[in-house]
Nucleic acid binder design. Sequence first.
DNA 1: CATTGTGAAGCGTTTCACAGCC
DNA 2: GGCTGTGAAACGCTTCACAATG
Lengths: 232, 232
Amino acid sequence: MPPERNRRRIPDATVSRLPVYLRILGEQADEGVDSISSERLAELAGVNAAKVRKDLSYLGSYGTRGVGYEVGYLVYQIRRELGLTHDWPVVIVGAGNLGQALAGYGGFGERGFPVAGVVDVDPAKVGTVLGGVRVRHIDELPQIVQTKRVNIGVVATPPHAAQDAAERLVAAGVTSILNFAPVVLAVPRAIEVRKVDLAVELQILSYHEQRKASLHAVPGAGAGAVSRPASA
Amino acid sequence: MPPERNRRRIPDATVSRLPVYLRILGEQADEGVDSISSERLAELAGVNAAKVRKDLSYLGSYGTRGVGYEVGYLVYQIRRELGLTHDWPVVIVGAGNLGQALAGYGGFGERGFPVAGVVDVDPAKVGTVLGGVRVRHIDELPQIVQTKRVNIGVVATPPHAAQDAAERLVAAGVTSILNFAPVVLAVPRAIEVRKVDLAVELQILSYHEQRKASLHAVPGAGAGAVSRPASA
DNA sequence: CATTGTGAAGCGTTTCACAGCC
DNA sequence: GGCTGTGAAACGCTTCACAATG
């Protein structure tokens, strides 16, 4: 029996949607649904049905024509593909406002990402307890990463400390980083970095708001020229 | 006649990078830099120089061949395009862990998004003070949105309350939503929604970790797999 | 016969490569 | 000479449309 084409390359766009499908499928399973069509899943995920089918087809042919997908089996396959068959402990650098909220937010551990540790440079914060975890000094980072087998680090420091935090994480052996600081981190190419930047998100919304506002300002179909028309 | 089409359509991908350029340009300005090349800006933003030039070209021709871009002027143009020439007050729904962290996080107001209010359904939370703002009852939402001219709402509730929060925001007159709840919000098409989902981000990192792990498992031709080829 | 799985077309984004200009 | 601005090629993602099939 030939095993499976193991080195499937899944498009980034698909990878970023699989967690959404997974969450929805979990909810459906909880409600007792055990079979679902691409159409229905698409509706719940807010996307197009063809996209759902193509996304799922990267995992293999796990549907049944004329019927749909078996929810439990699909959950299993997506979890396997995302590497969610075991926990991934994370370490949080920065015990400020955000670090505290993250550590205190139960959703982390529940979803398979237990907080293995929180560290900070500030001795005043060391020893305090956040979400059941004692804050430790950043010098203990290598030890935490090694003993708890941590692969994923979270940067929750102020901007000026973020690059240092990232370097310490990488030096300690972390290979993926979730960065909340509004800073472009310079790390080795092999390190996967994802960025969550509130200011960026708000500014994107601002762009759309401003756009709506200036549409209101122009009359019918013309080039209203409310602000300055610049030539090309 | 007003010469130019003012309604330039800027690609989404470009809009999402403009805030990054803007932040970097601001930092450069603070350091006294007043001219910058696409190459340098690209390096600081972690992207390709051609991309920077194409992105900036959607705003107009604001560079000088052979020289580069004037930092201050570029900041002005990007701010104008993003609608950052005035503040956009935001209202936060949900005074839990996350809502508190967001309200307490100074970066909001500093960057032009002052917190006009925080609301919650829970009477026990109403009246407490977060980051200088008193938590009010969610029934006061319409009043806050109207009197403070709020266009942007932030959903920071538990998942089960998120859809209701979104509907109340829309009913109150908000037209853009930043959603932190792990839920696909159903809103009218005219409402702009952006999503920040920690679990999704972590699961994407998990995918990459799992992928690295299974690469180790195969004998593989070539990839020497030393942990850190530190380069910048 | 409803629904999947998928070639192929369509579309938006990135990158190249170089003409245009300072 | 150096750097921008931009057509055009390359790429990746989305959507269509329909053959395959339980």
